[in-house]
Amino acid sequence: MLESPYPLWSLLGILFFALNIAAGLIWLERRLLGLWQDRYGPNRVGPFGLLQVVADMVKIFTKEDWIPPFADKWVFIGAPAIVVATVLMGFVVVPVTSGIVIADLNIGLLFFLAMSSLGVYSVVLGGWASNNKYALLGGMRAAAQMLSYEVFMGLAVMGTVLMAGTFSLGGIVQAQARTIWYVIPQFLGFVLFVIAGIAETRRLPFDLPEAESELVAGFHSEYSGMKFGMFFVGEYIGLVLISSMITVLFLGGWLGPWLPALVWFLIKVFGCIAFFILLRASLPRPRFDQLMTWGWKIMLPLALANLLVTGAIVVAVR
């Protein structure tokens, strides 16, 4: 279990970085997509288009904040807040370095899983409260998708837990310091977790809840202005969170030679983020039934098998 010497500073620092990185991702994602599509992406506002983020923020804050007269008003307003809140809560247990952590709970991993499952409420409620058929369909899809992928997400990381012998995320990193980055022994678990992670953050190719070609904009069809912005930013913070989790669980967290621990952590996190963006640039969106079939018929059995084998080996080694 890690203890931060400056818990309050850690908290503020992580909050500050999470939010700013999320904002920066708006720019980064568009630049990277541009790169992979042989274009430039935003390059007009400020140097390298960096101020695009500011421009977008100004725009989103000054847009009409519309609440549809047919919507369930309070739920409609509350839903976007949930997504940001739950994702930020997830950061509580993330050990950035051995010294920068808010609270390295001994059930840290379970806490993360719990928070990420709460996030689905935001989408479902947002979709339902909009009182719009596309939004509702989007919400329903989100519920089904999260439910399915959460199951093997949890199972996929159990291998690492077994190997580290702890639910504490700090403990898992430290365990990797003793042995080896778990991406190697737990490669299957790593792949499953990445896939589940994309699904949990509802990013392409698994953005079926908002599939714009079928559902207008899915669960946030009726959202505009900053309420839409919250969903938008929530997605990016979720992306940072899941990348942090991959880093912590499989890529040895802050571990690494020569460079300071924080730098290593950031490098790994951004690597993951870039990979997610690459997926978005290259993969088409599956059909919803395919998504569910993979989840239940392929991923879940694989995750169980992974757990079983890992368990067997762990028992055998002991």
Binding site: L35, W36, D38, R39, L278
Partner: peptide
């Protein structure tokens, strides 16, 4: 094919940009 697609797209990072800077 999925992996190859990802790789192919990644390689575009080194391709020339076609945008005309209007």
């Amino acid at each position: 094919s999925i992996l190859r697609t990802i790789w192919d797209v990644f390689l575009h990072a080194f391709a020339k940009r076609v945008t005309i800077q209007y």
